[in-house]
Design a protein around this nucleic acid. Sequence first.
DNA 1: CCCGTTAATAGTCAGTTCGACTATAAAGAG
DNA 2: CTCTTTATAGTCGAACTGACTATTAACGGG
Lengths: 242, 242
Amino acid sequence: MTATPGYDKYAFEPFAVTADLAVLTIRAGALHVLLVERGQEPYAGQWALPGGFVAPDESAETAARRELAEETGLSDVSGLHLEQLRTYSEPDRDPRMRVVTVAFAALLPDPPEPRAGSDAAQARWLPYDSLGPLAFDHDRILADAHERVGAKLEYSSLATAFCPPEFTLGELQQVYETVWGAELDRPNFRRKVLATPGFVELVPGGAKLTGGRGKPAALYRAGTATTLYPPLLRPTREGSPA
Amino acid sequence: MTATPGYDKYAFEPFAVTADLAVLTIRAGALHVLLVERGQEPYAGQWALPGGFVAPDESAETAARRELAEETGLSDVSGLHLEQLRTYSEPDRDPRMRVVTVAFAALLPDPPEPRAGSDAAQARWLPYDSLGPLAFDHDRILADAHERVGAKLEYSSLATAFCPPEFTLGELQQVYETVWGAELDRPNFRRKVLATPGFVELVPGGAKLTGGRGKPAALYRAGTATTLYPPLLRPTREGSPA
DNA sequence: CCCGTTAATAGTCAGTTCGACTATAAAGAG
DNA sequence: CTCTTTATAGTCGAACTGACTATTAACGGG
């Protein structure tokens, strides 16, 4: 029973609060996750999501952004999309002590090589598929992150967060295909994206991306819209559409 | 600097963790929220969301469900829809101490009269519109709850959580209209709801709800589907559809 | 006991969107 | 050159949408 002024009716236990990150990117057409290898028990040698304690003067969001900068080595993470997923608070999720974790998903365009985190553990990009079990309940956190991102692609302009400042519609389509694990019809995808005002806008000057095989693609950048109307729905799961 | 085995690389401050609830229901065609009046500073006399500390052996979800039972006086809250919204962790959100709050939205069918919470504060249903400023950052939490519920009505069968076990399509439509604050065309609403397999199913025996004015309505109950395909989109905001 | 009101349910129809598909254009590779 | 690859344009029928009209079945008041 702690006697705090104004809080005298309830007992409460102090909790450690951490911010954990599911940092996602698309590399070579496959979804990758930034993971750190644990150096100590519990789960020593296993991969875990990067994260750390929320400092006394920080919000969970601030802590998450700080961790993101530390783990990726990026100098400017202020423009990156950071999304709070949910909070994991099961009493036994960390065998050492009571830890409540606020989980975030972060989306990066092209993958910079991570640097070792400040806890000296190595950080690496690993493909989302073909991951072994992660430490703690991080499997579930990562699965939740994947599901959330996949769902948000449908009705928000989130996909552009995976892309560099200027990108082609082909690259944008690959974001959808990679996260959803489904192939999309190219002309139809194009039609829908361009039909949604403010989703993407043509880079002025008629810049094209050349160098690849095939006809050069026009370059676009993210527009001002944040929500997509109408939404870009995933190919129908569970049963046929009709 | 706290020396906890395995956690020796970081300083961390212990936080108090609470679970706060935005309990929503529809009463007399208007959205209502369950609020408690604060008896002490800070924000004495102002309305606040019900909530309380997470106990040492509880998850935030468990604590939220316990609080829900305490505040509403309902004997069985196990079937009620409880949804984690997000976590609010700004350092100054409670002037007394560092409190991290995991917020939940709960949906109730018909409104039982609340009983006074265990902290002796009175709990009341108040209309969502015409609310004065709430204590702490509860205005924002409540707004987030409203937005989340409104969005989930589109692509999930969440609306049935506002309805009693057996309901008419008119009642279901009123849920949508009340939460969205928009009127819907009755025949079209009916067509879409019935076209989505597993959303609602007819109560066997051809039961009708009589007693009101007009033709008796058929009774339905919630089906097994949780997601709605195709989604039931809100009337278009920002600009005309074409 | 009939008639007006109310609400549920059925049906219509034109415009739009969607998915599947074909066609053309513009680059690099050999 | 010509084959391959990718971008972009266009077509077409099916499905869906929103707006609307019509019918049915209850109640309430004169």
